[in-house]
């Protein structure tokens, strides 16, 4: 019997080894798998490469991981935020390496990894600093930059409901990078607000089919407040 349900975050994150590449879902606070990240900090894995849209907000989640000195490199599109103080301090101290990737290229490169593509040609970034030194090609009169897939050992994502086969649905804009990160990582761990019986999720509405997911962890999660407008 397939049962991908894992009882707690601490058990789930044992899959993360020192030096691992770890994708972490979330856009700002929406979809950030904070409880999995807390467990990862407790687990103690270090020398990590983190792939995520942001480099942490406030003092929880990725921000805490950076504060604890566990992150060697971060691959992201938007590290600088009003409340990214832990990343800012680490970056200014030269304690963290940054690979800055336009947001759509980040998504496309993650998706390419999950889809088994060797590379993509993207128009985004052509002629800019972020394409310096990269191979380019003109196709049908438009200029493209060659970009390579981003793979990961583990993905930590937050979904809304999941079942023991790993099928997932998400909630509102917390979906963001979850589906593509689940595809791109060798081992995808989803924290979910509720584990439901197999068959309870409408197959027409499953967003991430269980084939892309290796572990489902029930977490009674409270939403983290965003920034005041």
């Amino acid at each position: 019997m397939i049962d991908k349900k894992v009882t707690n975050c601490a058990t789930a994150v044992r899959a993360v080894n020192d030096g691992a590449a770890v994708m972490i879902g979330g856009f700002g606070t929406a979809g950030s798998p904070d409880e999995l990240i807390d467990a990862l900090i407790e687990h103690g894995a270090r020398d990590l490469t983190i792939i995520s849209n942001n480099a942490g907000n406030g003092d929880a989640g990725i921000a805490a991981l950076i504060r604890e000195g566990r992150v060697r490199k971060i691959v992201c599109s938007f590290p600088r935020q009003p409340d990214s103080h832990h990343f800012d301090a680490a970056w200014r101290a030269g304690a963290i390496e940054l690979e800055l990737v336009p947001q759509g290229n980040l998504a496309a490169r993650i998706q390419a990894a999950g889809a088994g593509l060797g590379a993509i040609f993207t128009p985004t970034g052509f002629g800019t600093l972020l394409a310096e030194g990269k191979e380019t090609r003109r196709i049908d009169g438009r200029d493209y930059v060659l970009e390579y897939p981003i793979h990961a050992d583990v993905a930590l994502i937050k979904a809304y409901r999941g079942d023991r086969w790993g099928n997932l649905v998400y909630r509102k804009t917390a979906r963001n990078f979850g589906p593509i990160m689940a595809m791109a990582a060798k081992h995808a761990i989803a924290q979910v607000s509720e584990v439901v019986e197999l068959g309870a999720l409408d197959p027409e509405c499953v967003v991430t089919p269980g084939i892309f997911v290796q572990a489902v962890v029930p977490v009674t999660s409270t939403q983290r407040q965003g920034l005041a407008a």
Partner: peptide
């Protein structure tokens, strides 16, 4: 010394 951030601007 500016921390670069690009987000979706280029796309």
């Amino acid at each position: 010394d500016a921390i670069p951030a690009v987000g979706g601007a280029m796309d």
